[in-house]
Simulated scan of single mutants.
Amino acid sequence: MHFYTPKSVLVALAAVNTIGAYAGLTTCSSSSEVLSCHNTTEASDLCCFNYPGGSLLQVQFWDTDPSIGPSDSWTIHGLWPDYCDGDYGEDCDSSREVSDVETILKNQGRTELLEYMETYWLSDDESSNEFWAHEWNTHGTCINTIDPSCYTDYYENEEVGDFFQEVVDLFKSLDTYTALSDAGITPSNDKTYTLKEFQSALGDIHGGYEVTLLCDDDTVYELEYYFNVYGNAVDGTYEPAAPLSDSSCPSSGIKYPLKDSSSKSKRATRSHSRRRRQ
């Protein structure tokens, strides 16, 4: 079994920043950690147990109309907490909604994180800052283990920076493009592939588990890696898990088109917003 263990990133704040030194989430005792979605009794410490959103999905885009991001990489959609039955909540805490993620990350000294997001976390129909705010407001506020009450010496929006850092760290551990390429699945405007071929290739980086692969008709555009987590969503251990929703792609004839650099100026009608699954 493959385990993804994210590394905590301790950020040294700039001298002009009056927030103070980074303190971080309260440490979870290994003896008290329970794998999310696997508890048999009520968890006593909800800062160390993801609930009710115990299934965490790392979601990636393959956008080609317009083409978004590097031609040799998928891009980030987000990290979504789902209930353990495939249902989910959204917009869970309006009091912690933000509108300017870029400024928050700059004020926290997370410039390298911001630069990475500017390349690999992009929207096809709005500004990056609007997209990031949507992902935090809609999904990040639903992750209970990064609630401000779970922090030591909490400062405003600390959990926002931690959320984006964790999403990026998890994305880096799931190099979809390379996994597919190593299996002979490369972008093409002529070739097609089977769902089984995709699942076999991606299972190699996801503990042998399938992913949820989404298509517009027969063209792949998105996928979802499912995880359960020991501990909190930032310092915890992510364990690959079986998907809780079905793929929408056909069993064969799946198109995986090239990204066309000439189409970057187009504006797509498809929103980044989450689609209800069939």
Rank of each mutant, 00 (worst) to 15 (best):
P6N: 10
S8R: 12
L13Q: 13
L13M: 10
I19G: 09
A21V: 10
G24T: 04
L25S: 05
C28W: 11
S29T: 07
E33G: 00
S36L: 01
S36R: 00
T40H: 06
S44M: 06
S44V: 08
C48A: 10
F49A: 02
S55P: 00
V59L: 10
D63M: 07
S67I: 03
P70V: 08
S73V: 03
G78P: 01
L79V: 11
C92D: 04
S99D: 11
K106N: 06
L113E: 07
E115W: 02
E115Q: 10
W121E: 02
D124A: 15
D125S: 14
E126H: 11
N129R: 05
W136E: 02
G140D: 00
G140L: 03
T141V: 05
C142Y: 09
I143M: 11
I143R: 05
Y151N: 08
T152E: 15
N157C: 08
E158Q: 15
E158W: 12
G161V: 07
G161Q: 11
Q165H: 14
L174W: 08
D175T: 04
T176L: 04
A183P: 01
T186A: 10
K191W: 03
L195K: 13
E197K: 14
S200Q: 14
A201L: 09
G207R: 08
Y209R: 09
Y209N: 15
Y209Q: 14
E210G: 09
G231V: 02
V234A: 12
V234L: 08
D235P: 01
Y238W: 12
S245F: 07
Y256M: 02
K259L: 07
S261Y: 13
K264P: 00
R267F: 10
R270Q: 13
S271C: 06
R275C: 04
R276P: 00
